[in-house]
């Protein structure tokens, strides 16, 4: 049921509906988010599915673009992290590790928050996943879950609103991976900033934040550019940043792994050289304007 909704919501008229595996993954992330919220509200979890799941699905309360995008980005993030971290005991970005000793207290705290958030997402528990939500998204989902319980349809009668307020008050957005990375990227000293161009020294989250701030595209969308579909959008971002083909190829192979078709990749790289930086920037600008227009249209 939810799968049909997802397909409709994400790609209403497109020929390529998301794969069943992708829909199942999105569903799983949404279930974990709802479960994390229910646990935060003190609701006993005896079954595999969250108690409010059925009602949330049937009433269409999960049909929210921002929620789905958050879920898709987490899936992309996990896929990239798995590839990047394979066989790397020192998987954390060197920049954050370097900055925790900074004399600038805000820098040090941001670096610490980032390292803690990176450690937390290693453990994909419902609570950890919920703690990674942007505040407004948590606010949106939490009150929908609360509404289900408050209506008295399931569970015991309690003051769920009070529990919801307490839960929200305890949520600290600055400790989410994307917010911690964004803050560190913003306040990074000039001499360290070039490291943002290198995903190995920056670490995945900080690297993505650097791109997000440079091109004013959301962290979530950048993660999906890196992981999903053809390589061209990500190559366009790299070109817009001024990367040369050699470094673009090494970044591509590091973050996407060796899963592309060699010939297509070669063509994309050939293309990469023929597109000048201004053209690439102009293309990225169009994506952004398109996304902003969609957001405004609601």
């Amino acid at each position: 049921m939810l799968c049909d909704d997802l397909a409709q919501l994400l790609f209403p008229r497109v020929q390529n509906a998301p794969s069943e595996a992708m829909q199942a993954s999105v569903r799983l992330v949404l279930q974990m988010l709802v479960q994390g919220i229910e646990r935060g509200l003190g609701i006993e979890q005896a079954e595999v599915l969250p108690k409010s799941w059925d009602i949330l699905c049937r009433s269409g309360l999960l049909r929210e673009q921002s929620l789905i995008e958050f879920a898709l980005a987490r899936i992309a993030e996990e896929q990239i992290s798995r590839r990047v971290n394979e066989g790397r005991p020192d998987k954390f970005g060197q920049i954050a590790a370097q900055m925790i000793d900074s004399k600038d207290a805000m820098l040090a705290q941001s670096a610490r928050n980032l390292l803690v958030a990176e450690s937390a997402i290693e453990w994909r528990t419902p609570e950890n996943l919920t703690s990674q939500m942007p505040a407004e998204l948590l606010h949106l989902l939490l009150w929908r879950v609360v509404a289900v319980f408050q209506s008295g349809s399931i569970g015991e009668r309690r003051d769920y609103i009070k529990a919801g307020n307490l839960f929200l008050a305890a949520h600290d957005e600055s400790r989410t991976l994307s917010a911690a990375a964004a803050k560190l990227a913003y306040f990074l000293p000039d001499e360290v900033r070039p490291g943002l161009n290198d995903p190995i020294s920056a670490g995945l989250s900080l690297y993505v934040s650097g791109l997000a701030q440079e091109f004013r595209i959301t962290h979530e969308r950048i993660l999906r550019f890196i992981d999903e579909g053809p390589v061209a959008p990500f190559l366009t971002l790299l070109r817009a940043r001024g990367s040369d083909p050699k470094s673009a190829l090494s970044i591509l192979q590091y973050l996407r792994g060796d899963r592309g078709d060699d010939y297509r990749l070669a063509l994309s790289l050939e293309q990469f050289e023929s597109v000048n930086v201004d053209q690439a920037r102009s293309t990225v600008l169009q994506w952004r304007l398109g996304a902003e227009a969609t957001a405004r249209a609601g």
Partner: peptide, 20 residues
């Protein structure tokens, strides 16, 4: 090579042609 296409084209023709 097709670098980008507007939404209406993508919706009607799928996104298979972008980057090809």
């Amino acid at each position: 090579v097709v670098l980008s296409a507007s939404r209406a084209l993508l919706e009607n023709f799928g996104n298979e042609f972008v980057a090809y």
